[in-house]
Amino acid sequence: MKIAVCFKIIADYDRLSGKDWEWDECRFVDMSFVRRVFNCFDESALETVLKLSRQLENVSDTVELTALTVDDEQGDLFLKHLMAVGYDHAVRICCNNRLDLRFNPLVISHLISRYIKQEGQKLVVLGMQGGEGDNGQTGFLVAEQLGWPCIREVIDVVRAESPDCLKVFSRIDGAILKQTIKLPMVLIMGHSLNSPYLRVPTLRQKLNAKKKQLTIVSNIELGLDNDALLNKDKTLMDLYGQKPGKSCVFLEGKTAQEQAQRLYDQYLKERLS
């Protein structure tokens, strides 16, 4: 079975302070001095699929894993990392660097779906949203273009009895939905408690991965010229910082015990139950 996981690399926003959020005339924030990390939902997707592939291989299914990203050369380091942890193919779709794709999930989905069709994948897994544009649309658009069923807020996926199906666990209205779904399908990964972190490659795996080749595909090769990548529907008008409102409540009480009891009764009890 051919499985593709689409991921995005973003700046580690935890390492940006309020004063760093200054944008230039093109409304780009300079994050070049901050390390880049896997988008958290994509990281879960990547690890979940690695675990799934081991299950599938145990029942003698041939599994071929592809990690796919739309990025510039900076993405290569992450692709090599993924080759080291067990992805068979590492693909980077490169576009004209000057294009602003942050708020253009439609174009990203076209690039992804064209590659998927070309390679005959059966399962596509993506994180539910990327930190940069926070669009939350790419997965749905990919499914639409492929004409495949799509499950959102996925927290886990495991092998099903039938080789044509997978068991998918997803969150819905506070409950967990377990479905057996026939392939092909698109899964949109939410907060996974089982696989929040991507595994770390061993020294030997890292060494072996260095010998492997990355696949670089351009938008032109996927049949989309530069003009097709322009965001014609939307224009970014402005960016502005949101001032977080803060409020403070002083808990009254004669003793610390009384104050703690009030804290529990009024603020914690409901959350903990």
Binding site: D14, R15, S32, F33, V34, R35
Partner: peptide, 12 residues
């Protein structure tokens, strides 16, 4: 190397 990379890393 861009010293801002190191400063940002060091601060965390």
């Amino acid at each position: 190397i861009d010293s801002r990379l190191i400063e940002n890393w060091f601060n965390h």
